[in-house]
């Protein structure tokens, strides 16, 4: 009966995940490997292809700040921000559907999201990446890693640590139903700074961890130690987020006119 409960929980989280996140890993992998009847993504690999791509890609977050006149590196950086804000909204909706989450102290819910969202953003970004580039605008475009690397300092280095993490993480070959539980586990971390009431958070996470372990055993019977390997990735994720915050601090120092979205300001303030 306990296993049955864990399967119900896994199914519930997967359903919530599909409702909350429009671009699934399944869809992204189909586009990246050409296994889809949809139009191939527009490949952006230099300044000319970027300009062409901007005409071809229909997307409401492509030019959110009326920024066509902005320098390319800053334009791309702004788009990353817009996408991150959208991701925070999606993750919040997903979190609310984790059984027990909305019954937690409201300030603890805020703390869990504050510390969890970027780990989740980089986990899900890996689904859109391969070693050569990243899907953008819901799979309408593919921006190459080399192009991103060629952006002027300090923007050129901004995505490298995410690609390095993605390549290692994608080697685990998780699918969307695995990721749904993993993401819930990340949110319900009882060791986030400033939590008021840790016990109920750890209780929910214990249940989620049991569901994750069973899910991985059933979905990847030949992949030994996958559960342990996945838990280790949580440490890597914290490192990716710490580096990300350091980059942002550098960018805010060197780019005096750089504005940060108010939601992201809230999240980054006193983070690490």
């Amino acid at each position: 009966p306990e296993c049955a409960d864990q399967r119900v929980l896994a199914k519930h989280l997967y359903d919530s995940y599909l409702k909350s996140f429009p671009t699934t890993k399944a869809k992204a992998r189909a586009i990246l490997t050409g296994r889809t009847t949809d139009k191939s993504p527009v490949v952006i690999y230099d300044m000319n292809s970027l300009i062409r791509g901007e005409d071809q890609i229909k997307c409401n977050y492509l030019t959110p700040y009326g920024e066509q006149n902005e320098e390319v590196a800053i334009r791309i950086f702004h788009r990353c921000q817009s996408r991150s804000v959208e991701s925070v909204r999606e993750i919040t909706e997903f979190a609310k559907n984790i059984p027990g989450f909305v019954n937690l102290d409201l300030n603890d819910q805020v703390t869990l999201l504050k510390y969890g969202v970027h780990e989740i953003i980089f986990t899900m970004l890996a689904s859109l990446m391969n070693k050569d580039g990243v899907l953008i605008a819901d799979g309408q475009g593919f921006m190459t890693r080399e192009f991103l690397k060629s952006l002027r300092k300090p923007f050129g280095e901004f995505m490298e640590s995410k690609f390095e993490f993605a390549v290692r993480f994608n080697a685990l070959e998780l699918d969307d139903s695995d990721l749904a539980i993993f993401i819930a586990v990340i949110i319900l971390c009882g060791d986030r700074p400033g939590l008021v009431n840790v016990k109920p958070i750890e209780d929910i996470q214990d249940t989620l961890l049991q569901a994750l372990e069973l899910q991985l055993k059933m979905n990847h019977p030949d992949s030994s130690q996958l559960f342990a390997k996945l838990l280790q990735k949580m440490t890597d994720l914290r490192q990716v987020v710490t580096e990300h915050v350091q980059y942002l601090q550098l960018i805010r120092k060197t780019e005096v006119d750089m504005d940060l979205h108010p939601l992201l300001q809230e999240i980054y303030k006193d983070l690490y």
Binding site: V8, L9, T92, K96, N97, V102, L106, N107, L113
Partner: peptide, 20 residues
């Protein structure tokens, strides 16, 4: 609470949680 007012708002938005 003031420090995280957008996160608070997102959490208290309409969409209702689903109970198992």
């Amino acid at each position: 609470k003031e420090k995280h007012k957008i996160l608070h708002r997102l959490l208290q938005d309409s969409s209702s949680p689903v109970d198992l």
